[in-house]
Design a protein around this nucleic acid. Structure first.
Length: 252
DNA sequence: ACACTAATAT
DNA sequence: AATATTAGTG
């Protein structure tokens, strides 16, 4: 059976002028182990994108009815940066949705957005990349070839992504053993991982990302990350070094 | 003293 | 390119 994978650390920008809804979105996205950056206004969001190319994997923007700034974001971003953009609105009438989709929106979510829908948005990122690569090679694209490390790591899914289950009896057994496997692959000690130097395996990196996310943006400093990761023989310096790289690839 | 970060070294 | 070490700051 194929190992299920999850795109840890996918960098998602959310734009919405309603700050309480922004927080809701942030919380949901963090539960999905994405990295999240939120903006209340379109201008700041766009200037971040202009100043930091290649640091946003996906944008989720409100429509900003009636000014339709959401549409501007969409047109700007799709024409200049090719970042998949998802539009949110509380109004889901067909003509509205159609307008955004025809202008290049990757998806249209109707508020309130449920976490189940956010678990699926990562696919838009990979869709775009597959679209780009398809003409140059007829090789079957392996999903792990599309991942870029360290910004995005494919690893077993986080608890939030537990599949919407209709559980058949034997499937239950499979899931349980999969869960056990996942526990078994959690790194608790790096003695054998540090050959000459430490290797940040996907498991270790996943724990790192989860620790960072659980601390939330600002407070994610090496010492606290280290505490939360709870990995023997891992040093604060090693975490700091890794954090530096992650942050230079930006986001947080 | 300690921890953080940016810069630099390996 | 990835990880470790150093050096300056609070």
């Amino acid at each position: 059976m194929d190992q299920e994978l999850w795109p840890y650390g996918l960098r998602v920008m959310v734009i919405d002028n309603n700050s309480s809804y922004l927080s809701v979105m942030e919380e949901l996205l963090i539960k999905c182990s994405y990295r999240v950056k939120t903006y209340k206004n379109v201008g700041e969001a766009m200037s971040f994108i202009y100043g930091n190319t290649q640091t946003v994997d996906l944008i989720i923007s409100d429509v900003f009815f009636p000014t339709e700034d959401g549409l501007l974001v969409l047109q700007e971003v799709t024409s200049k940066f090719d970042i998949p953009t998802v539009i949110m609105s509380s109004n889901g009438d067909t003509s509205t949705v159609m307008k955004y989709i025809t202008n290049g929106a990757s998806d249209f979510l109707i508020k309130p957005v449920r976490i189940q829908e956010l678990k699926n948005i990562w696919q838009h990122v990979f869709r775009k990349q597959i679209g780009k690569n398809r003409k140059m090679s007829n090789n079957v694209q392996q999903v792990d070839q599309l991942s870029s490390y360290p910004p995005i790591v494919l690893a077993p899914p986080p608890p939030c992504a537990t599949r919407t289950t209709e559980i058949s009896d034997e499937a239950t057994a499979t899931l349980e053993s999969a869960a056990r496997d996942q526990i078994d692959t959690t790194v608790t000690d790096i003695r054998d991982l540090r050959k000459p130097r430490l290797s940040w395996t996907v498991q270790l990196h996943r724990q790192f990302i989860e620790a960072v996310n659980s601390l939330g943006g600002e407070k994610a400093v090496p010492k606290k990350i280290l505490e939360i990761m709870n990995v023997k023989h891992l040093t604060r310096e090693q975490v700091a070094s890794h954090l530096q790289v992650i942050n230079s690839e930006l986001f947080l």
